[in-house]
Design a protein around this nucleic acid. Structure first.
Lengths: 201, 201
DNA sequence: ACTCATCCATACCGGTCGGTATATATTTGA
DNA sequence: TCAAATATATACCGACCGGTATGGATGAGT
């Protein structure tokens, strides 16, 4: 039996760190600012996390990874028609994703751009999530192919990587243009591309 | 007649700042590190640039903007067949772009992701370059349409935005996966998408 | 030759950062 | 009940950061 009194505090810090990092990036995120609205202090933080890097890695795995798994991967994996589920997600992502994605971008992509070249630990964790995403999309394409929906000559691995890349690209561009309409228009083009992989009849 | 003795120093600082910012991002770029290899000191820097922000904005306009104009916009604008020029650029960008783009990403996109939500000055300058890029691509598509190469029903504005978005997305993802093969594969998919806008005969 | 603006080096400042040392509640286990 | 482990607060530290104040060198105009 382990003590569980600490878990609420740990989660509070984790969530606050996630928000701060999402807003400012990891390096610009200040420990003091993270704690500011939590009612906790450095004593609590450094009890649960040995260093700022460890806190960042925990945010990646326990918040960002979990969120993406729940929002994107699970709906595809659990669908009976994964390819259709993928198309649905692309078409409706602006309603399904948290609203701050539009203004602050995708937390996964933000951290990848900032930290991957600087810290190998960050890089490997972030790449793990990215690989998971790409594999899920590839799996959806392969399932679609098996179900006779996707054209047999499609290179599912390459297409999956492109879909994820373009997806992140659309989020990033929309974040800068601060325009939901641009984002929707952009994702619509991606939707058309994915739909073009379907068998035309 | 104004004194021109200062121009070499200014350019040295500008170039060093560009490299440092490309490697670490703007906020993490340290003034001291920028000067370290230049043989100059803070006195020189703060003589030519009133603040770190002004230095960053100068890097954006005078280095990043110029580089992109020379590498991407000019070849399309000056081509007699802009649509073909666009396709060529997408297919050969890995040979034409500076090699550190693969490991460090696109400087424009890096700064957009980091700074646009934080600083409206950065945002407007970066968006200016982005708009220039999108307009150039859109112009290439429109020219292609006029020359009977692009299908008439294509929405050139939306397609151009998507092309730029996907382009940046491919660079970003490749930067994290640190794989030139992935980047090429990804850009190849984008190439296929753009080629699919062509009239099929 | 004198003046004055340009150009740049040096030394320094206040503030913030991540991290630590220590004391203190609180809970748990025997 | 009492000791030990857990959980958190507070005060503090050295490092680094962007920015400034000052003074000296250099060159142009008169």
């Amino acid at each position: 039996m382990e003590t569980r009194q600490a878990e609420p505090s740990r989660n509070t810090i984790l969530q606050a760190a996630y928000c701060e990092i999402h807003r400012k990036g990891f390096q610009a995120a200040s420990i003091a600012d993270i704690l500011k609205d939590t009612g906790l202090t450095k004593g609590a933080l450094y009890h649960h996390f040995p260093t700022k890097q460890a806190l960042g890695l925990a945010v990646i795995e326990e918040v960002i990874g979990e969120n993406l798994a729940r929002l994107l991967f699970a709906p595809i994996r659990q669908s009976e028609k994964p390819f259709e589920a993928l198309l649905y997600l692309i078409a409706h992502i602006d309603e399904l994703a948290p609203p701050d994605f539009a203004t602050l971008g995708c937390p996964l992509n933000n951290l990848m751009q900032e930290m991957s070249p600087l810290d190998p630990e960050f890089k490997s964790r972030l790449n793990g999530i990215l690989r998971n995403w790409r594999d899920t999309v590839e799996w959806a394409l392969l399932q679609g192919k098996g179900q006779g929906e996707v054209r047999p000559e499609v290179d599912c691995a390459s297409a999956a990587l492109f879909i994820v890349s373009a997806w992140e690209g659309c989020i990033g561009i929309a974040k800068n243009m601060q325009s939901v309409d641009s984002f929707r228009s952009c994702m619509m083009q991606l939707h058309d591309y994915v739909a073009s992989l379907r068998i035309s009849k």
